[in-house]
């Protein structure tokens, strides 16, 4: 476990239990510990080791005016520490489509509905601030917690890619979920966060 000596955060989106913050270069070792964690990386497609130096390059890549990737640190408000990452793996500005990815890197925070809250926050951001039209998310078939979150927020499984990925010795299917802005508008009130 990496101890954070000095607590620094740059809040960007406030939730009830969580805050989405700009990534912080002081937490590189913590981010690396998530990306390499045998359980956390299992379904996150990290088949190669990630060093803190790799992540430093990612943070230093500079920001384009319409970035293709957008990442947030997920900050746990009560415990005052970052617990994972959420963001867009890519944004296609012409088609107004974004693909989201979530990684609660600290397994002690799993099964607490926090992924659900972080997903709610990113969807609100996607539709209300970035004015995206469609959001997609993809995951391995056995990553049940991930697709359960998608179903809870009203995303639909639009595609199953047969034997698309090789995980722990077997070819497995991947799912693609999607949500349109108009469908989100109809049901966003259902969520109690905020």
């Amino acid at each position: 476990m990496i101890e954070i000596t000095e607590v620094k955060q740059y809040p960007f989106i406030e939730g009830k239990n969580l805050t989405l913050c700009a990534p912080n270069k002081d937490n590189l070792n913590l981010y690396a510990s998530w990306d390499n964690h045998p359980d956390a990386r299992k379904y996150a497609r990290n088949v190669f080791p990630t060093t803190a130096g790799d992540l430093k390059k990612y943070l230093e890549r500079g920001q384009e005016r319409a970035p293709r990737e957008i990442g947030f640190e997920i900050w746990h408000k009560a415990d005052c520490k970052p617990i994972g990452f959420i963001g867009f793996n890519f944004v296609n500005w012409a088609d107004r489509m974004g693909n989201i990815g979530l990684n609660i890197g600290d397994p002690s925070y799993w099964k607490k509905d926090l992924g659900m809250e972080a997903t709610y926050l990113i969807l609100e951001y996607a539709f209300n601030e970035l004015n995206l039209f469609k959001i997609t998310a993809d995951m391995y078939e056995m990553n049940t917690p991930s697709w359960k979150i998608c179903e809870k927020v009203g995303m639909k499984r639009e595609l199953t890619y047969m034997k698309q990925a090789y995980v722990k010795g077997n070819y497995v299917d991947t799912y693609q979920y999607c949500l349109f802005k108009e469908d989100w508008e109809k049901q966003r009130q259902k969520f109690e966060f905020k």
Binding site: D95, F133, E158, M162, F180
Partner: peptide, 24 residues
């Protein structure tokens, strides 16, 4: 045909679907 991604791309002023195909 593995499936169709609904309204996946904007062509000629409207959103159209994308057909996904696979071959093993």
């Amino acid at each position: 045909l593995e499936g169709i991604e609904e309204k996946a791309i904007y062509v000629d002023g409207k959103y159209v679907g994308a057909r996904r195909y696979r071959l093993f």
